[in-house]
Every structure is written in C-alpha cells, then in structure tokens.
Design a binder for these strands. Structure first.
Lengths: 197, 197
DNA sequence: AAGAAGTCGTACTTCCATGTACGAGCTTTG
DNA sequence: CAAAGCTCGTACATGGAAGTACGACTTCTT
C-alpha cells in the first residue's frame, strides 16, 4: 500500500534496473556531486541507454536519487521519539540527523546545481516540518528562546548540521566528536540565554 | 607604498583596463557566480581578447576578483576596534562582517567552483585569523565557552554568517533584522551557558 | 510460444563556454 | 616620433557531457 499508485505498466525487470540506477546514483552522487550519467550507468551495471530509457534527463535522475535519500532519511527520523521535553527530544533528533546530513551533503550539492531551489525546498518539506514543529513546541514550553523567529532558529540548526558535515569532510572535525559538538552548539542557540549585559 | 611591488613593466593603459575588468568581475560574479568571461568583458567595456590578455584563464580572473573583494573587506574590518571585552568586540566585528559576507557570497561560490579549496582557505587567512584571535581571547577572558574547540566556534560563526546571507537572498530574513539575529545567535553559541540538565 | 517491453552497444549530433590565432590599428612612453 | 605595448574583432579549435537514433538481441508476460 505504498509504492505503485498508478503505474499499471512497466515490467519487473525494468523495475529492477530503475532501482539499481537510483541506488547507484545516490551512492555516486553522495561522494561526487559531479558524477556523469555515464559513470552512474556503469556503476549500476546497466547500459547508458537503459538509463536514458528511464530518466530522460540527468536532472530527473538526480531528483530521483535525492527523493530516495530523503525517503530513507525520513524513515529513520520518524522512528525518533520526539515527545516529552523539547530539549531532550532535540538532542535525540540531532543524534540521528547529523549522520544523514553528512552522508547526503554531496548529493544535495548535486541537486542544487540542477534543480530549481523551490523544488529542493519542496522535497525537504517533511524534515523541515519535523524540526520546525519541535522548535516551535520548545518555544511554547519555554524551553527554547522566543526572541528569534522560529524559521531562523530552524535554519541555523540546519546550517550547523551542514557545517559539521563540511568540517568533517575537511578533516577539521573528528566524526567522533561531531554529535557532541553539534548538540552543544545547537542547544546554546536554541536555549539562548539572553545574556544580561 | 602598497601596490606595485615588483612590476616595472605594464603600461598605464593596461593597468586601467585590468582594474576595470577586476571590478566588473567582482560585481558580476557577486550576483551571478556563473557569469561568463564574455559577459564580464562586456561589463568592463573591454574586448574579450583584452581580458584574455591579462588573465589567461577564467579561474585566474575569479581569483583576482576574490582577492579584490577580500582586500576591500580586510580594510573595512581592520578599522573595527577589537579591544576590550571580547563579547562586545565580537558584536562590533559582526556588525561590519555580515554585510561583507552577504555581498560576496555569490563570488565565493564562484571561486569554490574553480579554485582548489586550499587556495580559498589561504586567501581567507586574514579574516579567519582575526576571528580566531578574538574568539580565543574571549575564551581566555572566560567570556566565551571553552568546552568546544576554538576552530569549531570560528567555523560556526562563519556558517551562521553565510546562513544569514542565504536567508536574506531567499527572502526569509529581512536585511534589517540580520544584524540582531546574527549577533544574538553567535553570542549564544560562543557564550554557551552549558545548561545544567 | 509469440509479441511486447526492455536492454544495450556504437555512433553521432548538439551545445556552449573556454581558450587560441591573426593581424590591423590605437596609445603610451621615453 | 617611433617602437613597444595594448586593444579588440572575427574566426576557429577544443573538449566534454548531454541527449538522440538505430537496430539487434534478450527477457517478461500472458
């Protein structure tokens, strides 16, 4: 009751190669955002022609890969318990999030080069909403600061997450410390003791 | 006593067009990181050939533009008073920094596409050093948290700065509020009341 | 088992920006 | 003022990846 909405056609073997292609695309693009369709086809163990048979354009393929990654991420994050104290919930959410972000950073970059910004936002709707709701709830609970707009706070969290991913790739942050560093930083911004001056 | 280190040659004439080219490049690239050499030449009111006469490659040109922007920024930032209380100094530094960052964000993006990451870091040495010293001093003064590495803190500040620039461009943050929002956010991360749990 | 659907190699067309080549004609400079 | 230094138009060479065209062959589906 989940995948084949309205697609009566398409043979089993086609389904199979599509899956291989998408998964190969996701893998390759996640390490090299400039991977060529050619490379992807090869990695998928499929002819370039087959690939073009299913994805008319490179952009479509990239989008499919992103959607796939996003879906996987969403599944992971859906499993996180966000009830109770918002600050603690955030810690849990971040613990699961940062790796996902780190892993798909390159893929995202690839998408940003070929897809309109609006489309990308659209695809990120669920994760963003999840974060937004949590932050907002925290603000209501009085656990998170209310002197800055929710939108901005959510953005900052994302920037910190991506930042950590970058630092790791650049070797300036040990993957081991990432979780702690991210958590602490985010917590400060969200909590934001409006330091008395 | 500043520019012509060792370059006895080059006619006044040439000097002039180089200046126009660099400035045009900086302007164009700051709004469209994909500006073509052709466009830049036109904007500079100079033939494409002239441009190539001075910059053998697009990358060289982009670098020159970045260097120019960085030099200008450095001049502005050098004027900021960083003495006294580190937190207050940081506020002053941010007040001058965020606009510079916002303005040159696209240019930076252009550079990131054609220059090796190392080169870019190298060029940013001064601004980064300035920030690093301030953060570090703040940590010594006990004004900034010491439970996170200086490097990371500096990075976060940069990410927040760039993030704000992005939000502004996307229309999700009013330029008017930028300074406040950035300052508050940065202050929280740096101050980082390690909230008792 | 037969026809539809899918696969895939090879070869080719397009596109487009970067960078080169020439050479005539203007400026500077000293 | 004359040569060295620049400018700049036009035309061409490169290169790389995207996407198209064919056609023979293979695997599903019913």
């Amino acid at each position: 009751m989940a995948e084949p909405s309205i697609r009566p056609k398409r043979r089993a073997d086609a389904e199979r190669s599509i899956a291989r292609i998408v998964s190969a695309a996701r893998a390759l693009l996640s390490s090299d955002p400039n991977a060529k369709t050619d490379d992807i086809a090869k990695a998928a163990g499929v002819g370039r022609m087959t690939l073009y048979g299913h994805f008319g354009t490179r952009a479509e393929l990239v989008e499919a890969a992103l959607v796939d990654a996003l879906k996987a991420g969403d599944e992971t994050l859906s499993a996180v318990d966000l009830t109770g104290n918002a600050r603690e919930a955030m810690t849990r959410l971040l613990a699961s999030s940062w790796q996902i972000v780190a892993e798909s950073a390159a893929l995202l970059a690839a998408a940003e080069e070929v897809l309109p910004a609006g489309r990308i936002r659209e695809l990120h709707e669920r994760p963003v909403r999840r974060m937004t709701e949590l932050v907002s709830r925290g603000q209501d609970q009085g656990v998170f600061r209310a002197d800055l707009p929710t939108t901005w706070l959510v953005s900052v969290v994302q920037y910190i997450l991506h930042g950590a991913a970058t630092e790791i790739r650049a070797g300036r942050l040990a993957p081991h410390d990432a979780a702690e560093v991210v958590t602490k930083s985010v917590e400060s911004v969200l909590t934001g003791q409006a330091v008395k001056r």
